[in-house]
């Protein structure tokens, strides 16, 4: 049993980690690098509030070559740490997922590559989309409540979402289904710890980063579930 769990999780985690790292280095990390330039003050962003100021648009105060300066990080050593950590986090997610496979199978469920896709997308929902509903993925230079408070809310939200999804998927009574819905909603009714917005990065850059972080995450989780499900079904 232990071998089956570990083998499936490691292969699925490494495959999804590689995909995640490629997608992130291509689409997301350049935005992080740009965010850092705003954070450090190399770039500045001014919210122009009065209509007249648009005419006096000041090119000296900001740099239209920002995307050029934050060139492809693929060759930088920093990318190595990023790749390694994606392999670690997705292997971690995979280990928890196959433990879930084993529990679900004991409860009578059948795991295949196809049902694995659903497991993967539900993992994305619980670990990325649900917490992002309260704490949107943050570019460097964004503001936030104290780190420990946000980590606590994040962990609580993920735990409640995993429990809620499990109840909705496997619950056999109206009470269990209702409890699942409550668990999904509860972290958001309590509310994430937020700070007054006073970030220094442009909102459109932050919005693009958030959308891409979630989009690349969804793709990586779908692959994770598919491969983990396929290996599990082969019964190695």
């Amino acid at each position: 049993m232990f071998k089956k769990l570990i083998v499936g999780a490691v292969f699925a985690g490494l495959a999804a980690g590689v995909l995640a790292a490629l997608l992130e280095l291509t689409f997301v990390v350049p935005l992080i690098a740009q965010g850092e330039q705003y954070e450090s003050g190399d770039l500045t962003y001014f919210a122009v509030s009065d209509a007249g100021a648009a005419a006096g648009h000041d090119h000296a105060s900001h740099d239209h070559g920002a995307s050029m300066a934050a060139d492809s990080p693929l060759l930088m050593p920093r990318a190595l740490g990023t790749v390694g950590m994606f392999l670690a986090s997705y292997t971690g997610f995979a280990l928890v997922m196959v433990a879930g496979f084993a529990l679900a199978e004991r409860a009578g469920a059948t795991i295949t590559a196809r049902s694995g896709v659903i497991w993967g997308l539900m993992g994305f929902l619980a670990v990325q989309l649900a917490p992002a509903f309260g704490l949107p993925p943050e570019l460097p230079g964004s503001t936030g409540a104290p780190l420990e408070v946000r980590q606590l809310w994040w962990a609580g939200c993920v735990a409640a979402s995993v429990g809620g999804i499990a109840l909705l998927a496997f619950g056999r009574s109206a009470i269990m289904l209702g409890a699942g819905a409550v668990m999904l909603a509860l972290p958001h009714l309590i509310g994430a710890p937020l700070a007054d917005p006073s970030g220094v990065v442009p909102p459109d850059l932050a919005a693009q980063f958030t959308a891409r972080a979630l989009g690349t995450g969804a793709a990586s989780w779908a692959l994770l579930g598919t491969i983990a499900g396929a290996i599990w079904a082969r019964d190695v």
Partner: peptide, 16 residues
């Protein structure tokens, strides 16, 4: 933190 920085931001772990 330094090694995992970009990965933490991209996965949306609360980072700093």
């Amino acid at each position: 933190h330094d090694v995992s920085h970009d990965q933490r931001h991209a996965i949306a772990f609360p980072c700093h």
